[in-house]
Nucleic acid binder design. Sequence first.
DNA 1: CTGTTAGCGCGTTCAG
DNA 2: CTGAACGCGCTAACAG
Lengths: 338, 338
Amino acid sequence: MDDRSSPPVTLEEVARRARVSPSTVSRILNGTARVSDSKRQAVEQAIADLQYHPNEIARGLALGHTMSVGVITQDISSAFYNETLKGIEDSLAEAGYSPLFVSGHWNATKEMERMALLVARRVEGVIVLTGAIDDETLLSYANRVPLVITGRDLQGPNVLSIRLDNEQAAFEATWHLIQLGHTRIAHIAGPQEHIDARERLEGYRRALKKAGIPMDDRLVAYGDFHEGSGLLALNQLLATRLSFTALFVANDQMAYGARLALHNKSIRVPEDMSLIGFDDLPGSLYTTPPLTTVRQPVYDLGKVAGEAMLRMIAGKKVSMPDLPLQLIVRESTTRKRG
Amino acid sequence: MDDRSSPPVTLEEVARRARVSPSTVSRILNGTARVSDSKRQAVEQAIADLQYHPNEIARGLALGHTMSVGVITQDISSAFYNETLKGIEDSLAEAGYSPLFVSGHWNATKEMERMALLVARRVEGVIVLTGAIDDETLLSYANRVPLVITGRDLQGPNVLSIRLDNEQAAFEATWHLIQLGHTRIAHIAGPQEHIDARERLEGYRRALKKAGIPMDDRLVAYGDFHEGSGLLALNQLLATRLSFTALFVANDQMAYGARLALHNKSIRVPEDMSLIGFDDLPGSLYTTPPLTTVRQPVYDLGKVAGEAMLRMIAGKKVSMPDLPLQLIVRESTTRKRG
DNA sequence: CTGTTAGCGCGTTCAG
DNA sequence: CTGAACGCGCTAACAG
């Protein structure tokens, strides 16, 4: 008795058992044509007896499609994009499509390999979540498969870029602090090679300008979007000995780090320091205190990306959807004291 | 000029362009046999000209394999399993395999559908991350494909269960609190239909028993492993008006909720209350204060699951690996005060 | 060394 | 209605 799994049942075996031709089995499976009740019964019986499951791969080969779309994410374990992956999975599932997730690990070379793998597996489209590949290469891939890409503005045939208005949202976040009476507002910015990070810094600048608050570059520190860098950046800010009563951080993860640094220095949030993040990660509702932040429509982003991809595959027109960012005011921000 | 992507180049087209037979192209692609340099050059030139990428799907059909393994996760956006997914991806990638991730959404019916989809796509094995499907059904699937399953103890041919010793780790966590001098220790348990949750409660009980501390059922509240339920559970515990100075929570997410509830009641951590979680999610290093918790080897779990699957596919023997849980002492626990 | 033939599992003509 | 024959893209066995 062998432990290994038995070889899959084929359509032909079903046909033999039901004493009909393979075509008849196929027709019943796909409802392609009318079949007499007697044969149908025999076939259904055989399918049940044999526990037959059609081979979707072979089916796809014959039909010329794979019912799958590739998704390049930088890190499948990223807290930020997980909800997006779910949105993609959900929208694709409705049309019988499956996502093929691969991680680029923030590495252009690796990302190219992954892209090649996806193309080799004949995915019908590729969704790129903030890739590291350069625009030109990406554009050339668009000749082979339709592309939906987030986090950058890429124009071209067979390509749809989905962007969110980070600048405006950062403006609103900063403006919120200003309206609470804060005038000394620091910023922990993200890595500047990242367009989102640049735009958030820009929104911060615009809000200060509109309020007539002079921009002080010493109140801007830089991080890499991870918690540790937020902690470090806050310590740098504190080391300048400049006073500030509010802090806008370019993403929630760095805000967590900054919040811990404040805690270590016994600076209270929000009493001594108002803190605002960006992203609204699931955990931000349960930080102490709950974090005021900008909600990114991460799930919808995935949903929309998946739906757009489906339309592109079907050869339909697609247009850039409007995905609003939203300021979520919780308890880490408060009116300036004294 | 059409916007759509052009149809993929086939091996046959390459052969025609290089004026050789398809087999020769195939041989060059796979290094199956020696080919004269002249033909090789011609073929390589044709491949470059046409930008040919072999169709892995068709290749798999001919070869009888798909180079893919299915992974059933309950929620692809779960903070807990993401690192595991990464571990699976990494180990599989080394052998040229790709994971096909699907979400079961904690729903047995949906999970069965997903399993069927994976089988239809002819994955060569399935890794089930804490599934909702019943044991019997799972065992029957093992006849078709090798299974690696976590979070439950299932014996059978073609099946490997990977379990972690939750009971022992929970014992150690509780014991740590006892050694710090705490005697009134509450517990927020997870959903009891979940074997991990039951084992953690059991470990808590054993530690109390060993220390000669009488078990008080009123000091045990129950949650659903999510943040909100942790917050609620803590409020319930407080409502009993029983005093306790330490709290062991069955997972980090509920610990976050409990921590917020404590903050809302101005109960300080760790001065007034020692808090310990379970899982060591990435965020636990940056809570205020950083959370003492039990580290689950989530990445290694995925790595090990992937490697075991590869061995099963190759028909080799596999054995249950030893994956230790580890208590990580940070700042949310401290010695009991006067 | 290399071309021809057959076949992977299934869908789809095309005749009956 | 239904079966035979052919093709999807590629590899393998078989002759040269």
